[in-house]
Amino acid sequence: MLIKKRPSWALPHSEVTPESVYLNRRQFMSGTLAVAAGLSVPGLLSAAKLPVPGEALDFVPMPGFSTDEEKTPFEDVTRYNNFYEFGTGKGDPAKYADEMTVDPWSVVVEGACDRPGAYALEDLLKPHEYQERVYRLRCVEAWSMVIPWIGIPLADILKRLEPTSRAKYVYFETLYDPDQMRGQRSLFSTIDWPYQEGLRMDEAMNELSFLAVGLYGKTMPNQNGAPIRLVVPWKYGFKSIKSIVKIRFQEERPKTTWEMLAPQEYGFYANVNPEVDHPRWSQKRERRLPSGLLSPNYMETVKFNGYGEQVADLYKGMDLSKFY
């Protein structure tokens, strides 16, 4: 007979946030935001301010999972971002992401798994020890950074949610809340919010896939995807979805945001690959940031962003120019 022991993190049903409270969380937040917005109008005129570092986190350094390349400074990592929910300018997220409330935060888990539900973020993270991993991040726009992330291997969390045999893919979703995210209010944005991403199950379970809750030893700044974001270092940056509110296990391959917007330019896999150019620009080289004016910091882009040893097997026999 199979006796299933409930692990300590698995809450009884009585502990789950009632749906009505959960569904009304935006109402509560928009109230506080209206006040905040009123107070911060003069602030909009000031230049990009230095980001406030978050709270210090306890973590274990993982040299085996870390590059010893020179790290991109904290100021650059936190002031040069693509997070279109807050605007398309690189400086917009640093300016406007503090309009998002990240505490309390819950993540809905659904689909083909034995532990679905709405989890308070603390409960999702509690049983795990944080690790620090210094990864390269290669943006599809041909720039790159080196960032010390703090977080948990994605596989550790996914396993706890007990995906069933029907779970072939994992789907992720970013917060949708135009009241807090001014980019979602833009009339001219061609993105169909919320932002959506996905991984094949074996990609998600790869030891490199990481759920980050901080960087540079502190909690995640909002503009970098607080409070919890994905980091898949062998793929272009847009795969590493920010501010996750939903995780779904599913049998069919999810459609991802950039793929839906421009399928000829952005594929589901989006593996870093210098041999497959973006239709509008080359992917052969990258500018490692910070880059100087007189001495641009160019380098050759490496297949799988240099993580081929760990991930190349996942794509054996696949034509990567077709499955880009």
Binding site: A47, D76, Y80, G91, W143, R287, P290, G292, L293
Partner: peptide, 15 residues
């Protein structure tokens, strides 16, 4: 902005 180095980490793109 070049003189005050306030162009951010990718000044070439910015310029």
């Amino acid at each position: 902005s070049i003189a005050s180095q306030s162009l951010g980490p990718d000044p070439g793109q910015e310029v």
